[in-house]
Each structure stands twice: as structure tokens, then as C-alpha cells.
Design a protein around this nucleic acid. Structure first.
Length: 267
DNA sequence: AAATGACTCAACCGCGATTCG
DNA sequence: TCGAATCGCGGTTGAGTCATT
């Protein structure tokens, strides 16, 4: 079934030999610089295809198989909050790629209740029940408690932060065990519970009184959320988002200046 | 056993955003 | 400041597989 485009670049399913070449390349040079991968490997593939294959299939720690009940539950609520922002949602589901999440949603969750496993969902996304994230990038931030995957870590500053609660060898910021993955899911689930109970039952406007979207904090973390093609010198989906309200619920208050500090107490 | 339809998921496409010279 | 290159993402497609007739 293989084919190639007008420039002769191979398309279609990957062979085992191609997988080995790509895997060896990434292990040697690291993720990123995808435009160099075809040159380094000799693969007749475009950079996008190489990145996609790595992120969605070859990358370590990818969780395969059915979604657990907890994952489905969290997925439903995150989708309710975020809509089709698969990379962000996947970032809350350790080991799941955005493509996985998207495929799962499109194949399982769009079925009518009774046709699918899991609980019914609200099919219609309206302006009043969806919160779009408002990116607010920050760095040098560490949460000293909670799941490791909820840590906020600026890769450029990790070595300067003695308080970071993360394994130095694990710059992917992924859960190291299924127990941690479950803990991460539970943590986000609880957080969403609190945020939903506190705010979502009210009719939150899309824009606040300053004309900005109420929503999420964006910082740096990668609990495993991945999207397909593209490239970056940092692992994909390094965004970390905090529900504004959850931020307060967690005891941080609403002083955004806190975010500039090296660490923030939690709980 | 063969034909057909339904389903899954890997992969591609296109476009807006970002980076870089 | 601008244009080209690259990245990141969501939407869509289609080949392979499974279930049903």
C-alpha cells in the first residue's frame, strides 16, 4: 500500500525497518529538529511523517489498549471544559496521545448512549458550557506536592531549581508507573470536580469584564500529551494549564505574581 | 466460504502560529 | 519589518480488521 508524492517522498504505513531507523535516530539525537531526521536516518519520509510516527507510535510510555473508566470519566469532563483541544486533554491523560484521544472520542463517545460503553455525554457544546484556555505562560514554577506529573517545570531552568520535585533523568515529565498515572488522573479528576462544582454550574461568560477569556493557566509540563506532526526542541505539549478557580481552590490565591517565584506551596 | 458493512486507528492534509535570518 | 521555514494542532481519510448475513 505504500506510495509516494510527486517529490518522491514515501507515504503510507511504516515498515519495521523504518521504525528502527527512526527510533535509533531519536535515541541518538533526541526529539526535535525533525527536519534533520530524514537526512540523519536516510528515511525517504517528510519531517511531519517522522514526528508523527515517533509521537503516536514509537515513543516510550505510550499507553495502548482500552481507556479505563477513570480515563473516560476525565476525558468527558475535560472535553466538556475544553472542547476539541485534544493535545491539552491528552496532556491530562498519562500515556495517551492526542490522536488516541481524538480517535477514541470520535469512535466511542460520539455514539448514542446505549451504543457505547461509559456514561452519556452532553453532545452539544455551547458558548456557556465551554471554557477556552487563556494561555499564560510562566516558568520557574514548582509544585512541591501533588502528583509528579502535575509539576510545573521549565526545562531551561530545571538545573537551577533545587526544589524541583522531579527526577532529573526524566525530562519527559511522564508518570513512571501505572500507579502514578492513576494518581495523576485522580488528581485532575478531583481538581475538575472542585472547579465544576464551584463555577461551572453558574453561567460563566466567555469573556470576563476585561474582555479576556476566563479559563486556564498555561505553563510548562508534559504528562504525556502528544499531538501528531510538527516539531519542537522541547517535548510536545509542554503546556500546563490550571483552571483559574482550581488555582484558588488549591490555595494559591489569585496573586499572579506568585507565578514568578521559584516555587509555590500547594495544599 | 464469500460478500458486505461497520468499526478502528494510523497517517495525511491544511492552516494558523511561531521562529529565524 | 518582512518573508520563508518550521512547528503544532484539529479535521479528515482510508486501509485493515472484525462482525454479520
Amino acid at each position: 500500500m505504500e506510495s509516494s508524492d510527486s517529490s518522491g517522498v514515501r507515504k503510507g504505513a511504516w515498515s519495521k525497518e523504518e521504525d528502527v531507523l527512526l527510533k535509533n535516530c531519536v535515541e541518538r539525537y533526541g526529539e526535535g529538529k525533525w527536519h534533520l531526521v530524514p537526512v540523519r536516518t536516510g528515511l525517504n519520509r517528510c519531517r511531519k511523517s517522522c514526528r508523527l510516527r515517533w509521537l503516536n507510535y514509537l515513543r516510550p510510555n505510550i499507553t495502548r489498549g482500552n481507556f479505563s473508566k477513570d480515563e473516560v470519566d476525565l476525558l468527558i469532563r475535560l472535553h466538556k471544559l475544553l472542547g476539541n483541544r485534544w493535545s491539552i486533554i491528552a496532556g491530562r491523560l498519562p500515556g495517551r496521545t492526542a490522536n488516541d484521544v481524538k480517535n477514541f472520542w470520535n469512535t466511542q463517545m460520539k455514539k448514542k448512549p446505549g451504543e457505547r460503553k461509559g456514561q452519556p455525554i452532553q453532545k452539544t457544546i455551547t458558548k456557556t458550557n465551554i471554557l477556552r484556555p487563556r494561555p499564560r505562560t510562566f516558568s520557574n514554577l514548582t509544585i512541591q506536592d501533588g502528583p509528579r506529573t502535575a509539576l510545573v517545570a521549565d526545562h531551561n531552568h530545571e538545573q537551577n531549581n533545587p526544589n524541583k520535585n522531579i527526577n532529573d533523568n526524566d525530562n519527559k515529565l511522564e508518570p513512571s508507573s501505572s500507579q502514578e498515572a492513576s494518581e495523576c488522573i485522580r488528581w485532575w479528576s478531583n481538581l475538575l470536580d472542585a472547579a465544576e462544582e464551584d463555577k461551572l454550574e453558574k453561567d460563566i461568560p466567555l469573556l470576563d469584564d476585561k474582555g479576556e477569556e476566563p479559563g486556564l493557566w498555561t505553563g510548562q509540563i508534559n504528562p504525556g500529551g502528544l499531538m501528531d506532526d510538527g516539531d519542537d526542541s522541547l517535548p510536545a505539549s509542554e503546556d500546563f494549564e490550571f483552571y483559574d478557580d482550581a488555582w484558588e481552590l488549591l490555595g494559591f490565591g489569585n496573586d499572579q505574581n506568585n507565578l514568578q517565584d521559584g516555587s509555590i506551596p500547594i495544599g
